[in-house]
Design a binder for these strands. Structure first.
Lengths: 192, 192
DNA sequence: GTCGATGTGGCACTGAGTGTCAATGGGGCA
DNA sequence: TGCCCCATTGACACTCAGTGCCACATCGAC
């Protein structure tokens, strides 16, 4: 058990490192799974035992971040209104995906430039949305079974949209303006 | 010229009709392009001369709708603030994609249930966003070259998000609640 | 040491999407 | 009418992502 999971984690990390290196070097679409497998010293078939799709190598841990935001949201005081709590929760998990800002910037740009990555990234955001909505529904005192009550969905989706807009602007200006400020700017534009 | 474009339009329509029939009958992913081509009486290769991807058969004319919304937005009086103009523009183009509400509901559900369709659909929304942002920027008096000014992007993206949330709720409750009301509910939740 | 569970590689397959090429057939022109 | 240009088409081969299957190796438990 211990050895198995250790080697598994090691292989997982090795694939991720190797693949990201290739992606950033020659581009996401120009890198085939055969390339990654060969460079990581595994078989093509084994790659798919670690990652469901090529996109998951880049966006894999993005799904887990949804849980982080949800936890941060639940930690917000009950006295805060839903909108404020959501915005505060987003601030609490602003930690990056990559080691450095420069690397994160490269990844962001790659995601925005590659249609399939962009699409998957948005799918992940939809998962965040699903993870956050119940708590917001609770705070609003909405009937969880009422499908016509879209208030919680609207609030959650809008805050995530603000993050999206901020991320895109951050990548567009090469990280010159801090992401946090851009997010606050977007939030302020919606509810000044 | 005339005959060519006429036959081309005819074939285009024939593929669309045949494919949608198959999609609604046995599902989007269970229908292969070979199935569509065979049913429409064309070759597999010709299918790709009319549609870039299988998703485009379902979402093809969705792209053009972005231009419609932009035109509706430009038609709004200058005295309206950006948010109100955007919401009004959305109302102006609420016309459906399908003949009947029942058919539209089926299509909506298919899109929401199929990951690849869902992703493409959101990509189209991003195109709408790009089409609408310049006009909103103008109305806000923002510097078109300032990448750090995210107000216009935030407003546009949020209104489109409201539409998305409303559409999903509409499909979830089987069209029992009118889409327009759901959209208004989402908008009110953001800016009551 | 044997047994079951788990990881791995190899192979074949489906299905989307692309490039190429020869054949067909309409439209314009002498 | 005959000829040439050009768009469309089908057929074939190809790349690449992703999946199912099977045989083999290896780790841990008994």
């Amino acid at each position: 058990m211990s050895l198995w999971s250790r080697t598994r984690n090691a292989v997982y990390g090795e694939i991720t490192r190797t693949a990201m290196e290739l992606f950033l070097e020659r581009g996401f679409e120009a890198t085939t799974i055969d390339d990654i497998a060969a460079a990581a010293g595994i078989s093509r078939r084994s790659f798919f035992r670690y990652f469901g799709t090529k996109e998951d190598v880049v966006l894999g841990d993005l799904a887990a971040r949804g849980e982080l935001i949800r936890d941060a949201l639940q930690a917000r005081p009950e006295s805060e209104d839903a909108w404020t709590a959501l915005v505060s929760a987003m601030h609490a998990v602003k930690a990056g995906l990559a080691e450095t800002d420069a690397e994160m910037l490269k990844i962001f740009k790659m995601v925005h430039e590659t249609p399939s990555l962009r699409a998957r990234s948005i799918e992940k955001h939809l998962q965040w949305q699903a993870a956050l909505t119940p708590e917001v529904r609770r705070r609003l005192g909405a009937d969880p079974a009422d499908p016509a009550d879209v208030r919680a969905e609207a609030l959650v989706a809008t805050v995530l949209t603000c993050l999206d807009v901020a991320s895109e602007a951050w990548a567009r200006c090469d990280g010159a303006v801090p992401l946090e400020g851009l997010f606050d700017g977007a939030v302020a534009a919606i509810r000044g």
